[in-house]
Design a protein around this nucleic acid. Structure first.
Length: 187
DNA sequence: CCCTAGATTTACT
DNA sequence: GTAAATCTAGGGC
């Protein structure tokens, strides 16, 4: 298994969001391994992106978006949900991250069902807060380096044969004219 | 299938 | 004080 190097994330945030489609997210809990293929992402940038958490300024919550690329940005929202992002940008930007919106489960499906507390295996990980729950990702993974072999990292996945679909990002009010939601046909 | 409402904490205005 | 990069259950069609 090849872990994606830091240079993978030193490109434009939107480009990295597209490139992450088909890659593999790996989560190790003790001796068990959970993994899935990334099938939907969204790009969030900086001053040019009113929908981004980093749009206004650096804060305690978003500071990792301004730090080294290839790290995890986990935030808590709507009073009960975690969302998982990967910091990525080129040198023209001070901040940026890619939100992982959906994956297709590969290994450890039983563990995901247990973590989610239900057996709706078709819709186990088809939303940003669903996959963090299925993989057991919480605020303690904030700032974790995803380019080294630890309990959570990103590796090479599959080759994409189908076309990439671009759409407006989900659940935001600003900048909906930007088609920075990317997915591959798996649902 | 589609739509609506409720849950419940954080962080910024 | 209130909006938030969401999800689920429940009711109607």
């Amino acid at each position: 298994m090849t872990i994606l190097p830091r240079t993978f994330y030193t490109k434009d945030t939107v480009t990295v969001a597209k490139n992450l489609l088909g890659k593999k997210i790996v989560r190790k809990i003790g001796r068990k391994e959970i993994s899935g293929i990334i099938v939907e992402t969204e790009a969030y940038r900086h001053k040019d992106d009113p929908a981004s958490h980093a749009f206004r300024n650096i804060t305690e919550r978003n500071k990792v978006m301004f730090g080294e690329v290839g790290k995890a940005y986990v935030y808590f929202t709507y009073g009960m949900h975690y969302c998982f992002n990967i910091v990525a940008r080129n040198s023209r930007f001070e901040a940026g991250a890619v939100l992982i919106r959906a994956i297709t489960p590969e290994k450890g499906i039983e563990i995901m069902e247990k973590n989610r507390g239900m057996k709706d295996s078709k819709r186990l990980t088809d939303g940003p807060a669903k996959l963090t729950q299925a993989l057991g990702i919480t605020k303690k993974h904030y700032g974790l380096d995803l380019t080294i072999n630890s309990e959570l990292f990103i590796a090479e996945g599959i080759k994409i044969s189908s076309k990439i679909i671009s759409s407006p990002r989900i659940g935001i009010k600003n900048a909906t004219d930007r088609l920075w939601n990317f997915k591959i046909g798996t649902r």
